[in-house]
Design a protein around this nucleic acid. Structure first.
Length: 207
DNA sequence: ACTTCGATGCTCT
DNA sequence: GAGCATCGAAGTA
């Protein structure tokens, strides 16, 4: 029986943590007690001290403070008016995080569809903000809470996902840092975000 | 107070 | 695949 991931697990390199999260389960328990769960199929790492893509680092002091909170706390990055679910990594004072970009809906699909009506079920949670809406997450309430909170927590994958089943690419939607292969995707999953990676791993290695 | 800019999503061609 | 809505954070004044 796999155990809920604890905050201490996130006091480490976000790239390794992100990779290890693939295949895990994100579990949302609504105020009414409904279980909404999904398999984690797409993640990205942001490691500000060495990451040109991380606008929280040198450039945005306030955001940096948010992301530099104690490891293992939920936080919501906002971009284009949308909340993106992340977990703070590394020791307090260091801005680093894992971004959950897509999940495969498992339990509570009906409830998710209520939160976020879509025509094709495939579009329910295949984007970082989409899954936040589908799970009914409330940033104002949940930002800063621990990753092992009853309302929102995670299980590691039941079996480790082998490297052969993982696509490693550049991250989506960023300007700087596009050569860093810090996006991890469950290969072949139909539930990943539709955005095409700007660069596949092989072209990164070729450059 | 005003301007710019995204770690996005949606709606059309 | 192009265009636009969106809104909080940051920079400027």
């Amino acid at each position: 029986m796999t155990e809920v991931l604890l905050p201490a697990h996130f006091n480490a390199d976000p790239v390794r943590i992100a990779r290890g999260l693939l295949g895990g389960t994100l579990i949302r328990v609504t105020p009414e007690g409904d279980r909404l769960t999904g398999r984690i199929v797409e993640v990205e790492a942001y490691d500000c001290p060495r990451d040109p893509a991380c606008t929280a680092g040198r450039f945005h002091a306030a955001r940096s403070a948010d992301m530099a909170t104690a490891p293992g706390r939920w936080l919501f990055w906002t971009a284009y008016g949308h909340p993106l679910l992340q977990v703070a990594c590394r020791p307090e004072g260091v801005a680093a995080s894992v971004l959950i970009r897509a999940i495969e809906p498992l339990e509570g699909v009906g409830h998710m569809l209520t939160n976020r009506p879509v025509t094709r079920e495939r579009d329910l949670t295949n984007g970082p903000a989409k899954l936040v809406y589908a799970l009914g997450l409330v940033p104002a309430l949940m930002a800063g809470t621990a990753v092992d909170s009853p309302a929102l927590h995670m299980l590691p994958p039941q079996w480790p996902v082998p490297d052969g089943a993982v696509d490693v690419t550049a991250r989506i939607g960023i300007r700087e840092g596009r050569t860093l292969p810090w996006r991890f995707v469950l290969r072949g999953s139909p539930w990943v975000s539709p955005a095409t990676p700007s660069m596949e791993l092989h072209s990164i290695l070729a450059t």
